[in-house]
Design a protein around this nucleic acid. Structure first.
Lengths: 83, 83
DNA sequence: GTGCTTTATGTGATTAAGGGCATAAACCAA
DNA sequence: TTGGTTTATGCCCTTAATCACATAAAGCAC
């Protein structure tokens, strides 16, 4: 299900988890997304200066999508998920 | 409800809609978020080079949050919302 | 229309992202 | 442990985002 991504660190975690769930290495994802392996490494570990376009390239390659809505509706699952 | 933000343009729309719903001007939001008015203007109109940190500053100031999940579950409401 | 507010855009300076390459560090399997 | 794979970092360079200020262009009330 959807995971909360309020910070760059949380977003990085989501990306990493999904990548591994798909059985991909950072290098594989680099090939799919056009984003370099080194950059993927930095983003997955919480680099908050990444550009929106770069993030979107990764999400698209991982068949993920971003949604935006009002805050403060986080469930326990979301919180655990964000660790 | 949560709105789909697959592109910078969609995200910009969401931000603008929320800002207006809160009765804020771009200058107000600039004060709240620390992001300059000119930049907010560019982001709201679909600037895809914005940094993740900048986007997060705006979302936080607007009391919005981002979630990430698998694609292709868009409802008609999401699609209309994204226009 | 006039005036005021809000939003969009242009320029130059500063700062940082990402490209590109190298390599260290961590992680496994044999 | 040793070797191969995967991930993390360091550096330089080019490009671009953001700052900062100014101003044009819309929008809106009166």
């Amino acid at each position: 299900m959807d995971a909360l991504a309020r910070s760059a660190g949380q977003l990085g975690h989501i990306i990493r988890r999904r990548r591994k769930a798909l059985g991909l290495t950072q290098t594989d994802l680099a090939g799919l997304s056009g984003v370099r392996q080194e950059l993927i490494s930095r983003i997955e570990t919480g680099h908050d200066g990444a550009r929106l376009g770069t993030i979107n390239s990764l999400l698209a390659a991982l068949d993920l999508e971003m949604t935006v809505g009002p805050r403060s509706k986080s469930s326990a699952a979301d919180i655990l998920d964000a660790l």
